[in-house]
Design a protein around this nucleic acid. Structure first.
Lengths: 221, 221
DNA sequence: CCGTCATTCAATTATTCCATTGAATGACGG
DNA sequence: CCGTCATTCAATGGAATAATTGAATGACGG
């Protein structure tokens, strides 16, 4: 057993954090928790996985200081413990996007087929909204919308996009957003709208990034 | 075997990157590579570990797009592949520093004992240097100093600090920096100088962060 | 083309991680 | 205080990861 100097001891701690990020399911859990606090059961339901499994992963995240838990009666609500979690996630994603050929392949094969246009930036969206030129839809489930959304957005969960499009203002372009930059729902929404003849684009990123940028968020009572 | 949707496929890729960061030794390797490109052998020597071991870790980092390799004759020089690597590292470190009690314990037990003062910020340092109020020393080994250092810094490898202090300007405060925020060398240098009666502080962060901040770097021919 | 040297590969063992299962804990509501 | 329900724990088997060893590759220098 080698002698561990303080620097190595620190690096072991840093590695615990990074290791906790090193599992696809835990990353997905982080994306969900970035929308708002969730109970173990609620998270498990969102992900369609056994509660015990999610619970164990949550504890790995908690040991790494990535999420924090708060007991409320029978429930334990988990939420992200630190703002840096999202920036770490973003940096990791950035490395993967720029350096991994496999990511490029997946994006070309799936995402580009649904939205080959440049997404709308947050700045652009603010201008377009101010001038009343677009309809902004939040295609996440209603519960996530309630926990925080872009002011002026209307909630059209993905499954209701087709039905909604009939009553939508046919003149205005639609901008859709959901949970994050690679959240499939906004891609699907844009593809569905386009197939119905609507002009539609995605917002770059999603709700957590909007919030992280310090932009206003509307919360339902 | 569950059906993998494109989002999960992407998250698996992101997890590969994070997983590659999830090992203390690989984090230390990244810190070294942040000083400049290194051959496998050189890195192994810096870390005091077998070449084959380092080679395997380098390949894990390469598969994750974190480092890139360039062949030069018999040697293969590795360097960081992406600027986001350091920001991911910094975010991970930030989470650990703020959320993990064990990090706090290590810092209190070792680092605070050597430098309980607030470190000098980069901005402060620039002012102090401009006004000629401090002597800036780079306590890294000479090879790392040669690959890039803060303009105006003089190279005093840690082992030579005591000898150097005899000839140093006794009036000016000394500011020391090395590889990064938790690099032990600058802490040791400050402790050594103080025990000799010199006023000394550390610079926050180290060379890679200085460079990442877009500040000027001097390279020896 | 042969020896040398940097690097990588292959095989081994020990360890850690992961999903699943079923049981245990702990808090609420009657 | 008892049943219910959300969560956690403990134990299992199977998979991935890590360090070590020794052999293989590939490029240079004579």
């Amino acid at each position: 057993m080698s002698i561990r100097n303080p620097k190595q001891a620190l690096y072991e701690q840093f590695a615990i954090v990074a290791k906790a990020l090193g599992h696809p399911l835990r990353l997905e859990m982080i994306e969900h928790l970035a929308q708002g606090a969730r109970s173990v059961e609620a998270l498990a339901a969102k992900l369609g996985l056994p509660v015990a499994n999610i619970s164990q992963h949550l504890q790995a995240l908690r040991r790494a200081g990535i999420v924090s838990a708060e007991r409320d009666g029978k429930f334990v609500h988990y939420s992200l413990a630190d703002d840096s979690v999202l920036s770490a996630f973003a940096s990791v994603r950035g490395v993967a996007e720029r350096q991994l050929a496999e990511v490029d392949r997946i994006v070309r094969g799936y995402f580009d087929a649904r939205d080959d246009m440049r997404p709308v930036t947050r700045d652009e969206l603010q201008t377009l909204m101010r001038d009343g030129l677009v309809t902004l839809i939040d295609v996440r489930p209603a519960d996530e919308f309630a926990l925080g959304h872009v002011p002026g957005a209307i909630n059209v969960p993905l499954g209701e996009v087709r039905a909604w499009s009939g009553s939508a203002d046919a003149v205005k372009e639609v901008v859709a957003y959901c949970r994050g930059p690679w959240c499939v729902m906004s891609f699907e929404a844009v593809a569905a709208l386009r197939s119905l003849g609507h002009a539609a684009r995605r917002l770059e990123d999603g709700m957590p990034e909007w919030k992280a940028a310090g932009l206003p968020v509307e919360v339902l009572a």
